[in-house]
Design a protein around this nucleic acid. Structure first.
Lengths: 149, 149
DNA sequence: CGCTGATCGTTAGCTTGCTATCGATTTGGA
DNA sequence: TCCAAATCGATAGCAAGCTAACGATCAGCG
């Protein structure tokens, strides 16, 4: 029963490692590609907006943005209307990476699910969605009496 | 197509967060529980042996072991026969945590897959196994021409 | 018997996630 | 108008993964 959790963790780890390796060849780390994916679509978002879309915390985006800035992938600009906001803008270098990165991602997904039938893929998709829904819906976790501590 | 990867990542993250929260109530972090699971079964393994079983690198186990030692969950003992080896032994505190942790893990798995039918669970299980097999078998990733750099 | 190479664990340093806290700015009410 | 509260990014510090490099120990060959 708990075996599924183990498999899920293992599969995700393998995929993440493969993705990181593939994207590193284009000067982008696996975490950064998520930021790029959103900014390619909508440039100039704030760290907070990005964090909400990526479903990570703001500090995570801030730190990733700092590394990407150092790597020449984006620049920070203060919002002229609201001094609290910072807007993240992609550089030409980041835009140039769009096609190769998207392609690498597509190839990876294709490779990973190559041995699955279309039906199996649909099943996998819906099962994962159900798990996500279950974990986000009634967020309060199954609390076994942990009081004795 | 690449949607499955996203779902997998998201599901794993939610499960990991829930597991960490549940286990933290018993003084064990999510990464430490993996070490415990192996040592409950076979006490006195070396960091290298543990790393092989957990499919992580040796430094990862060493660092986790250091944190667990600080938390009073295990002790390091040098192997009398081979001075290079270090053997990790659980403390009574770690043994006392076995039942609650195992139970928390079981409850979490049950909760996560509560909305799935038995058939869906089997499908999920086999799909994940296929992905893992595919990613480990022909490890060399799909290399798109990244030469232009 | 001694030295060289292999085999361990450890350390250093990186990425990516988190929470908690701080500082600056903006907004809204007195 | 001005001060308090809210909002936002940045920072500090932790967990858990990784690679690379280091140091100690063992084994085997000369």
């Amino acid at each position: 029963m708990t075996e599924v959790l183990r498999l899920l963790t293992r599969a995700q780890k393998l995929l993440r490692a493969a993705a990181d390796e593939a994207m590193s060849r284009h000067g982008v780390r696996v975490g950064q590609n998520l930021v790029l994916e959103v900014l390619w679509e909508t440039d100039g978002l704030t760290p907070g907006e990005l964090a909400a879309r990526l479903q990570v915390t703001t500090p995570t985006v801030v730190n990733t943005a700092t590394r990407m800035e150092a790597a020449g992938l984006l620049v920070r600009r203060r919002d002229p209307a609201d001094g609290r906001l910072v807007r993240l803008h992609l550089t030409p270098k980041a835009r140039a990476a769009e096609q190769p990165i998207a392609e690498a991602r597509r190839l990876l997904a294709e490779h990973a699910t190559a041995t699955l039938t279309d039906e199996e893929r649909r099943h996998l998709h819906s099962a994962l969605k159900k798990i996500i829904e279950q974990m986000t819906a009634s967020a309060p976790p199954p609390g076994p009496g942990a009081d004795g501590d």
